[in-house]
Design a protein around this nucleic acid. Structure first.
Lengths: 123, 123
DNA sequence: GTAAACGCTGGAGTGCACTCCAATGTCAAG
DNA sequence: CTTGACATTGGAGTGCACTCCAGCGTTTAC
């Protein structure tokens, strides 16, 4: 498929896709006329990119994950290790978010906002 | 406390703190010599800023939340509403992360990596 | 055959969140 | 009284993740 269709099916702009290609986040073949040709497999990949990115992973990180996966020997062990790493990172973020949530909930309980302006200012 | 101490106690650079002040994320009084003077209350606030930011909230958003909290009428209802909003946002992020984790776990289970390079390319 | 829609490139510009720097001022210790 | 650590400002620079544009070629519909 060409870049326009990919753009519509992913919700990414053409410019964003071309940018992703420049930084090695996605690959394409070229038609004889020079147009990019993308395979169907980029759809789930870009979907993953979108999700991971929205959740705080940088494009550089994501590109590295993709590269590692592609360069990894086919051994299930190597792949598992890579995924385990990713999952651990996600779990860490989950834990942080839970902590933030707890903090918010605790402060919601008291009358005390995040920035105690007039609280605890009486010596 | 002055900016150097605050920097050490928060782990933020002096420049970052001055930048935060410029965008209204934190406030200070000035000593007669022009030095910034920060109260103890900025410590938990900057800690919160750090956490929230690391978890995907922009400084603009965080500043807005702080401002809302400060400008909110003292009504417990208003504060509760603001906290409920924040918590809902955090919960949404938690849900997204959980989904990503599930996706990772699922793909780790199959032999199929994120970018199925040689999979499903046999017609 | 022509107009609209689509594609290409290179380069400039944007917004965010800082970081670095130079020139200058303040203050405590020796 | 100088030295050093710390403070101030304004402005420039950085890295990220795009976005926009000019100027051009290609494809498609009529």
């Amino acid at each position: 498929m060409r870049i326009g269709e990919l753009s519509e099916r992913t919700g990414l702009s053409r410019d964003a896709i071309r940018f992703y290609e420049r930084i090695g986040l996605v690959e394409s073949r070229r038609s004889p006329n020079g147009y990019r040709e993308f395979g169907e497999e980029v759809l789930p990949w870009l979907d993953y990119v979108r999700t991971a990115q929205r959740l705080g992973f940088s494009l550089a990180e994501i590109a590295r994950h993709g590269a590692e996966l592609r360069e990894a020997p086919d051994s299930a062990a190597a792949l598992s290790a890579l995924f385990a790493e990713r999952i651990a990172a996600v779990d860490a973020k989950l834990a942080e978010l839970s902590a933030l949530r707890a903090e918010l909930a605790a402060r919601a309980g008291t009358g005390c906002p995040l920035e105690p302006d007039r609280v605890s200012s009486r010596p």
